[in-house]
Amino acid sequence: MNDSIIETHDLKKYFEEGRVKALDGVDISIRRGEYISIIGPSGCGKSTLLNMISALDRPTSGQVFLDGADLATFAALDEVRSHKVGFIFQLHNLLPQLTALENVIIPMHEISGSASAKEAKARLLLELIGVGHLAGKRPTRMSGGERQRVAIARALANDPLVILGDEPTGDVDTKAGLQIMDILEKLNREKGVTLIVVTHALDIAKHAQRTIEMRDGRIVHQ
């Protein structure tokens, strides 16, 4: 596996009994600490690839290695999601009944530690992302950009090796989008977290160290 944190070999994901080929033989390799953007037209398989890498879904065939474990056959995918990856959705997906602080704590339920230590860490993460003042607020009382920042703090909760963003700026205005990308790039730069961002926006993609371009379920450029 050398320095790669993610590798896929002939990765395929078919839907509707093979009629829809979302991924059709994808081979990629991503190094630790790399910042990658994945671009391509709608329906080209970007999000599906991200779902495979983040252990949200299993491939139809092929292999997907994350930190040495083949997720195609690995039994405890929830362990991978909990400890190795942090996922940022296009829509923040925060739980509306919980405060920002409680939302950040949610992934920590699966790790050991005292409640006070978890709370302290969640506060720290919110401060780090610049939304410490929102700790006691519910998502319904935040702007789109604020919600997405809280979602980033949640993705960082369990110190993941990889942060995956599926159009993380897709639901916020340009200014908030740039701020969010600044935060993610800073995390990549200063903490060495591997960052993979799926985006339509070329001005966001160009900030990445490397861009993977997809079309019809295949990699056309990397």
């Binding site: 999601r81 997906n93 992934p107 699966e110």
Partner: peptide, 16 residues
């Protein structure tokens, strides 16, 4: 359902 999906996506085990 969607909320539960989020919980599973952030690593919650089935038993939790």
């Amino acid at each position: 359902t969607r909320e539960i999906g989020v919980l599973r996506a952030v690593g919650w085990k089935r038993r939790r």
